[in-house]
């Protein structure tokens, strides 16, 4: 943060001069904040308020009437909701997998073996692809008689209806998600590792510490902040951003077995036109994410996440 003081001009400024420069400064500051403030308030904060209000109404997109907690009552009596929430919990399996894959990629790249820059370049590729492209690609791999089945045939295994099967479909979604996400995780970990003092590793080497021992006793503790950040981010992502994957890989099926909260909200709102009910669902999703984030920050008290720097 800057000192908040206008740098004093050379010589002795008159009172009106500093008064005028403070005014100019404020004028600039508010002017420069205006675009961000107007867009964020008008297109995010106000809509959030509208969603909160409409979650207590039977809004159909045109008319709305206050109905108190009826929407929430309906939500908690809807068996599909429990299934959908349970699905999101199952998809959380992806979080430790993403963390593990990111850690492996980062630690190995950090070894700086032949061609490590090329590998780092390649590992980023999934990160720049749309979940739509990744999702369609993975569902193609797992089509009946598709690439994966053909590979399995080599080992004498028969065709398996991956996407027609509850756990098969979940597996494909999780696999796509891990593949899509580990590049970002790797960068975050690598950037945390670059702040570790190399002298620590040298000292460990002199003491004859094994590679595994150095990983466990130096690297992981030193990057715990980064790991925690990734864990928080990926848990949020699992709950709020699987829409595109689910949309193209499984359409939520078989049954509702891969439907996530955001996908279900999309269906009820934009396909069935129940906007009030959808608003309540969206709000519920937000509260879940908020609770999980607070819980994670509390469970692993760590300066970095709380400071957000």
């Amino acid at each position: 943060m800057s000192s908040g003081h206008e740098p004093a001009p050379e010589g002795s400024p008159s009172v009106t001069d500093t008064e005028r420069s403070r005014k100019k400064r404020n004028f600039f500051s508010y002017g420069a904040l205006a675009p961000a403030a107007i867009l964020v308030l008008g297109l995010m904060v106000v809509p959030i308020g509208a969603t909160i209000w409409h979650s207590f109404t039977n809004w159909d997109g045109v008319n709305s009437q206050f109905i108190g907690l009826k929407n929430f009552d309906l939500i908690f009596h809807n068996p599909i909701i429990y299934q959908v929430l349970w699905n999101s919990v199952i998809f959380l399996i992806s979080v430790p997998l993403i963390l593990a894959a990111s850690l492996v990629a980062a630690v190995l790249v950090y070894e700086k073996v032949l061609g490590w820059r090329v590998f780092r370049f390649l590992f980023f590729i999934p990160m720049v692809l749309s979940p739509v492209i990744i999702g369609v690609l993975f569902s193609t791999f797992f089509l009946p008689g598709g690439a994966v089945d053909q590979l399995l045939r080599v080992f004498g295994l028969g065709n398996y209806s991956w996407l027609g099967n509850v756990w098969g479909a979940r597996f494909v979604v999780i696999l796509a998600l891990v593949w899509a996400s580990f590049g970002f995780g790797m960068v975050v970990i690598l950037s945390a590792m670059s702040t570790v003092d190399p002298a620590l590793y040298d000292a460990a080497n002199i003491d004859g510490a094994s590679w595994w021992r150095r990983l466990r006793s130096i690297t992981i503790p030193m990057i715990s902040g980064a790991l925690q950040f990734l864990s928080v981010i990926n848990v949020i992502y699992t709950f709020t951003s699987l829409f595109a994957f689910v949309f193209v890989i499984t359409s939520g099926g078989p049954g509702f077995s891969t439907t996530t909260v955001d996908y279900y909200t999309y269906i009820t709102t934009f396909e069935n036109g129940q906007f009030g009910y959808g608003a309540a669902l969206a709000l519920l999703l937000f509260l879940i994410v908020l609770t999980l984030t607070i819980a994670q920050v509390r469970l692993f008290p760590n300066r970095e996440v709380q400071q957000g720097s």
Binding site: L33, M44, F286
Partner: peptide, 21 residues
């Protein structure tokens, strides 16, 4: 403004998009 942004940074998109739509 900054704290408002921090708080809504990870807001599920649908919360915002529903009334906007």
């Amino acid at each position: 403004l900054f704290w408002t942004m921090l708080m809504i940074m990870f807001m599920p998109g649908i919360v915002v998009l529903l009334p906007l739509y």
